[in-house]
């Protein structure tokens, strides 16, 4: 596909006196897994919410599917998995999926099929009719991912998707994400886990609202002359602190 799914330019956002995002540029083409890494409070979630159109940016522009955000209609084309599991606990997993499917305008005849597909992807098929209140943390996380997939979106925005999921399943999910990528879908993933960062096609390091570094994992390691993304992360952070000290 020729178009880029997400184009963010010179995005600035502040809450009170705190500058949360400072001139961030981000371009997410079709068929790519884009990783956002950075410490807590770095501005990752704010960036994601700006892309979704839930936050208005102070300056700069965000375009999703060639539409300037915020735009309500475009949200149907974006699968979103929030950082915290926002699920209706008194409902069953199937009812949660049905609700969000309806909200995402999934046609009635396709809905049952989509529920089976999404549940199968995260290995919840056998637990679909159980109430969410009886789910473990990992199961809730997987259900959240299934909900993000319910309308078969071209763009997935996943905020820390694999927190609380055991390594086996994490492996499976990444395999699935790669399969989805091969069908031309794109994913914007935030993560703390450095070995996950290695699996991304492209990475952006955010710290204190500033994009410290970006590039493919290999290019980043080369640029900072280190062996792992973790070291890239640490080194870039120290350099930023040193610069701040000089200022």
């Amino acid at each position: 596909m020729a178009t880029d799914y997400v184009i963010a330019k010179q995005v600035r956002k502040h809450f009170g006196h705190q500058q949360v995002l400072n001139q961030i540029d981000l371009t997410l083409p079709a068929g790519m897994i884009y990783g956002l890494i950075g410490p807590s409070g770095a501005g990752k979630t704010t960036l994601i919410k700006s892309i979704l159109g839930m936050e208005a940016v102070d300056s700069g522009t965000v375009k999703v599917m060639d539409t300037v955000m915020p735009n309500r209609a475009v949200m149907a084309q974006v699968g979103y998995m929030a950082q915290s599991d926002a699920l209706y606990e008194t409902l069953t997993a199937r009812e949660n999926l049905t609700l969000f499917g309806q909200l995402m305008s999934v046609p009635k005849i396709k809905l049952a099929q989509m529920i089976d597909y999404a549940a199968g992807l995260v290995d919840l098929t056998s637990q679909l009719d159980k109430r969410v209140s009886g789910y473990s943390g990992g199961m809730k996380r997987r259900l959240s991912l299934a909900i993000a997939l319910i309308q078969d979106p071209q763009l997935l925005i996943l905020d820390e998707p694999t927190v609380g999921i055991d390594p086996e399943l994490r492996q499976q999910i990444w395999t699935e994400l790669n399969k989805l990528k091969d069908t031309g879908k794109s994913m914007l993933v935030t993560t703390h886990v450095m070995d996950e960062a290695e699996r991304c096609d492209y990475l952006m390091l955010i710290r204190h609202g500033i994009a410290l570094a970006e590039g493919t994992p290999a290019a980043l390691k080369q640029q900072y002359a280190v062996d792992t993304i973790e070291q890239v992360f640490l080194k870039a952070g120290r350099m930023q602190d040193a610069n701040d000290g000089n200022r």
């Binding site: 929030a82 209706y88 606990e89």
Partner: peptide, 14 residues
């Protein structure tokens, strides 16, 4: 408080 409102608003619902 559970975030479901915010999650609902991440869909095209008015």
């Amino acid at each position: 408080t559970t975030g479901t409102l915010s999650r609902l608003l991440a869909t095209p619902i008015r």
